[in-house]
Design a protein around this nucleic acid. Sequence first.
DNA 1: GCCTGACAGTCTACTTTGGACTGTTCTGTC
DNA 2: GACAGAACAGTCCAAAGTAGACTGTCAGGC
Lengths: 198, 198
Amino acid sequence: MSRWTVTLNPTAASLLGFLHRGPLTGWELQSWIERSIGDFWSLTRSQVYRELKTLAGAGLLRAGATGKRDRQPYSITAAGREAFRTWIAQPPASDILRLPLVVSVFFGAHIEPDLLRRYLQTARLEHDAQRARFLTLREHVQDPFQRAALELGIEYETLLGRWAGSLPWAQEAGAPRARDADSNRVGKPRGRSRAAKR
Amino acid sequence: MSRWTVTLNPTAASLLGFLHRGPLTGWELQSWIERSIGDFWSLTRSQVYRELKTLAGAGLLRAGATGKRDRQPYSITAAGREAFRTWIAQPPASDILRLPLVVSVFFGAHIEPDLLRRYLQTARLEHDAQRARFLTLREHVQDPFQRAALELGIEYETLLGRWAGSLPWAQEAGAPRARDADSNRVGKPRGRSRAAKR
DNA sequence: GCCTGACAGTCTACTTTGGACTGTTCTGTC
DNA sequence: GACAGAACAGTCCAAAGTAGACTGTCAGGC
């Protein structure tokens, strides 16, 4: 309750925001955020847990008693609320986007047509799926602000899905083709981080 | 020219891509990228220069003679081309988006209406401006792949601009108001990183 | 009773950001 | 032609963020 300065990073600040509605564990926070504004506010588990500890250390959160599987709920303190209000009043920082698929298209001349098509199709499916999820979610969101964010999510997914699916390189080549059996999976493609032998 | 493994990070890999069209300095790369796919592929100067050094050390780039203001051009080597081809063939990694403005809206209930309106209006102007820049750029882009990326940029800016501008909280309150004089600047608002006194 | 998968959190290496800092050259303007 | 800005070119570092491997716990199905 003294008067020192807390430097809130954006992730920490957004956690404070989510904790306004009641105590949550790191796990819950992470999955909550991922389903609501995860589209526009990516963060990782490690980051969440780290910030929770820092925030608790700074007195902006209070850690509750650990439950079943080391579940550790955190609740926001008065100081936390105030810190959040101060943070949210600042002008928003600039956007960060990293869409590797756009890089793939940009350098499309360097990719096997087959591969590019598959990546585009996968992206289309994923954006469509996410769009569907958002449409469902919309039924249950009352808060007009959250709804507005959700609307953007829906339109964003629509745009990206349409874009990926309607590019000429996304279209099936003239003749039908077999093979490709295994590699059409839709699961989140984590990849292209490493490797480049020579 | 031996056979060890190079691990390319996405930034480094995209630099290799850009260097296919000829030698460029870090500065040129940075500004080139910012103007072309910067919208979907954010990176910073420090990162660019660091990766250039690493790539040169790994033999994927060759540093040219330094020119006027320590200008140091880099050109891609055969090994670099091959590394790029290998990288670009991997399935694209997952997207990263961080749009602080969406967080502002999501937590809109916690912001002064006046502030929120100003932030939304500023965003609208910025997206419109970027859209205009892209429209101009489109005239000069021949490559169909780059054009496709650009089209997405245009539609993205259209979407975001429209969204920010048409939200109810973006509208002028009923009565006209003076004040607000200084704070309507359009320059990129870097902010809301630090501060939260108590 | 024990297997499997979802849950919960930890840890670490690496990547990326933001911005301060040092110089250099160019472009006026007087 | 001197000199003040502005744009150029690159360096550096701390802080923020990501990816994914790792440990362990509990619930339900067989």
